[in-house]
């Protein structure tokens, strides 16, 4: 059974409800609390997708952490089909010598995460780990240090809890699956 979110987006089914997501974020937060006790930790959320996960995760970490957010965008290039990825919002906290966790909503190919990791590495942190709510290891092209993940996913197209379709659907408190044929 499917329903239509607005005129253009049809939702196939709900995959994870709000409670399941909250519980998983809490579980990950507790793991991080145990692993980083006594360490100087900065959690960096990737806007906009990780916004809700970042909010739930950081509140579940019972440590005196610092938080920041980073944004990137695909800047179109008129001469090329793909353009270039650029940092649109940089972090403001000095992460040199500190432990960093990048909080992502979803990791599939690992391309964007590799880009962000490489960028943050240039700022001299002690180490960088990755925490993502959704992870598709079968599609991972680039080896990246995914230390924590909430749910393993397949090739489904997902929406909600920060994930969007043409900027719509991020604020859904649950995660829904989109039909792939839907364009």
């Amino acid at each position: 059974m499917s329903f239509v979110l607005d005129d253009s987006i049809e939702i196939k089914r709900t995959v994870y409800d709000s409670n399941t997501l909250q519980e998983k974020a809490h579980e990950l937060g507790q793991q991080i609390t145990g692993d980083y006790k006594g360490k100087e930790l900065v959690i960096v959320g990737v806007i906009k997708g990780a916004l809700y996960f970042f909010s739930d995760l950081t509140r579940a970490v019972d440590l005196p952490i610092m938080i920041d957010m980073i944004g990137f965008g695909n800047i179109p290039d008129t001469t090329k089909k793909t353009g270039a990825v650029k940092i649109t919002k940089d972090i403001n906290i000095d992460i040199s010598g500190k432990h960093v966790i990048i909080a992502e909503d979803v990791i599939r190919t690992g391309l964007t995460t590799a880009y962000l990791t490489s960028y943050l590495e240039s700022k001299g942190p002690a180490d960088i780990a990755i925490c993502t709510m959704f992870f598709n290891p079968d599609r991972l092209l680039i080896p990246i240090p995914v230390k924590y993940y909430g749910f393993e996913i397949d090739d489904s197209w997902l929406l909600g809890y920060g994930m969007d379709r043409n900027e719509i659907g991020r604020n859904l408190p649950y995660v829904a699956e989109l039909p792939k044929k839907e364009q």
Binding site: K81, T82, G83, A84, V85, L111, Y115, S118
Partner: peptide, 12 residues
């Protein structure tokens, strides 16, 4: 060629 562009796009 397209894949090379994608890698360039991500500065890889």
């Amino acid at each position: 060629e397209e894949f090379a562009r994608i890698l360039n796009m991500y500065n890889i």
